[in-house]
Amino acid sequence: MFQGFSDRTIDFMWGIRFNNEKSWFEANKETYLRDFYQPMRELNREVWERLNAAAPDLGLFGKVSRIYRDARRLHGRGPYKDHLWWSIQRPTDEEFARRPVLWFELEPEGWSYGMGYYQAPPVTMAKLRHRLDHDPAPFEKLVRQIKKQDRFTLETEDYKRPKGHLSALLDPWYNARSFALSRDHKGHQPVLYSHDLVDLVGEDLETLLPIYRYILSVEADPDPRN
């Protein structure tokens, strides 16, 4: 059962940032497993249980990231990450960034969670635009619900040349090549240190399930570019 993170969790993240080498990590590995990785796994499991109960047909699964960086992509950085995240998504052979996922991340400066599609295939975004061109009302309703909650902020990577104009509400989505709905927190508030975090993150991510479903359904549409 998730009991919360602790000051040891935060101290470890800062420690690995400034001592990113094997000897320091090995000397503090037990702290990492006990105070960082294991609580992250427990949080992931309990939030997954809530989302899976709310949408059993999606077949969602949870996964916690590795602290080890890909040796092929170090680019002068140390071999370890100073943060961890977990994802909840449908089973897939695709890379994390190429599938829509629900996520939570804890890092030295703060924490965040939401839904992201960070490297959405161009064909998927073309399908979304085609849907919005022909039947925008269902997606408009979902976007209005998200904006009304005032919890998540839409973050996008846009095409250099806009794809078109529909409305002030839908244009940010229509012209995005990838996107995320994110709730970001600077610092480490008391909720991180208690089981209340499960309820907060679980409740908020559950409100994103309708738009997550919508994006999944878009992927099944025929390619409008043909």
Score class of each variant (00 low, 15 high):
119 Q>E: 08
208 L>M: 01
168 A>I: 12
219 E>A: 09
150 D>M: 07
75 H>K: 14
203 E>C: 10
100 P>N: 01
225 R>Q: 13
141 K>A: 12
110 G>S: 02
53 A>M: 08
198 V>D: 09
214 Y>H: 14
48 W>I: 06
152 F>H: 02
53 A>V: 12
109 E>V: 05
150 D>L: 02
111 W>F: 03
59 G>P: 00
120 A>N: 04
84 L>M: 11
95 E>Q: 04
146 I>S: 01
90 R>I: 03
127 K>Q: 06
5 F>P: 00
148 K>V: 07
59 G>R: 00
186 K>E: 12
10 I>A: 03
138 P>Q: 02
190 P>M: 02
185 H>E: 13
216 L>H: 10
11 D>E: 14
122 P>K: 10
191 V>A: 14
192 L>F: 03
26 E>V: 12
203 E>Y: 04
222 P>N: 12
106 L>D: 00
179 F>P: 06
130 H>C: 12
110 G>Y: 01
93 D>C: 10
21 E>C: 11
119 Q>K: 11
88 I>G: 05
128 L>F: 13
48 W>P: 06
181 L>S: 07
101 V>R: 09
139 F>C: 05
85 W>S: 06
84 L>R: 07
56 P>Y: 05
203 E>D: 11
87 S>T: 13
24 W>V: 04
13 M>L: 15
213 R>G: 13
194 S>R: 11
168 A>G: 14
74 L>C: 09
216 L>G: 04
88 I>D: 00
6 S>H: 03
75 H>R: 11
53 A>T: 11
162 P>F: 07
107 E>R: 04
222 P>F: 03
128 L>C: 07
97 A>L: 12
81 K>G: 04
153 T>D: 08
116 G>L: 13
103 W>Y: 14
2 F>Q: 08
2 F>H: 02
95 E>K: 11
71 A>N: 12
48 W>A: 01
142 L>H: 14
186 K>V: 09
202 G>F: 10
120 A>Y: 03
157 E>D: 15
172 P>I: 08
198 V>M: 01
141 K>W: 02
71 A>D: 03
160 K>I: 05
37 Y>R: 14
78 G>Y: 02
96 F>C: 07
80 Y>R: 01
161 R>A: 06
147 K>I: 02
56 P>E: 01
34 R>L: 15
160 K>T: 09
152 F>I: 00
75 H>D: 15
25 F>Y: 15
92 T>A: 09
69 R>Q: 01
164 G>E: 06
154 L>G: 05
72 R>S: 13
54 A>S: 10
10 I>L: 15
9 T>D: 11
176 A>E: 06
93 D>I: 06
114 G>V: 08
37 Y>L: 14
197 L>Y: 04
35 D>G: 11
193 Y>K: 11
203 E>M: 08
55 A>Q: 05
167 S>R: 03
220 A>E: 09
138 P>N: 08
201 V>C: 10
115 M>I: 08
199 D>P: 02
